[in-house]
């Protein structure tokens, strides 16, 4: 599953301006504790979180994540979006809860 497909199938809103490439989504990880994400999130994962401050970007870069999904329609501030664009981190949001979007992504990734 590519990031592009995942965005389409899950109806995610793309908040960053860079075109979404064909990077592979290897899985997902749902957590709001940054150290836990650093420890356990895998390369190419989509990170599902309610943390919208700019420090999530360094984590995404260090872990080579496919992107970050902010849940419950949460919007980061302009500075975070701008920095995400500069750092080439794909930042997304959804109206769904963390529970719901995690379940949907899980099902999607299980598809043959």
């Amino acid at each position: 599953m590519t990031l592009k497909e995942a965005i389409e199938r899950l109806g995610l809103h793309v908040l960053t301006s860079e075109e979404v490439g064909d990077a592979k989504v290897t899985g997902g990880y749902t957590c709001d504790l940054l150290s836990n994400v650093m420890a356990n999130c895998k390369t190419g994962n989509l990170w599902i979180t309610m943390q919208t401050h700019q420090n999530v970007l360094a984590v995404a870069k260090l872990k080579d994540l496919a992107g970050i999904i902010f849940v419950n329609s949460r919007q980061p501030d302009e500075e975070t979006i701008q920095k995400a664009n500069e750092e080439h981190v794909t930042v997304l949001n959804t109206d769904e809860s963390a529970f719901s979007i995690s379940g949907q992504l899980y099902q999607l990734l299980k598809e043959p």
Partner: peptide, 9 residues
């Protein structure tokens, strides 16, 4: 609240 300081560092 920012998701830091969870005692995992």
């Amino acid at each position: 609240e920012m998701g830091f300081g969870a005692g995992m560092g």
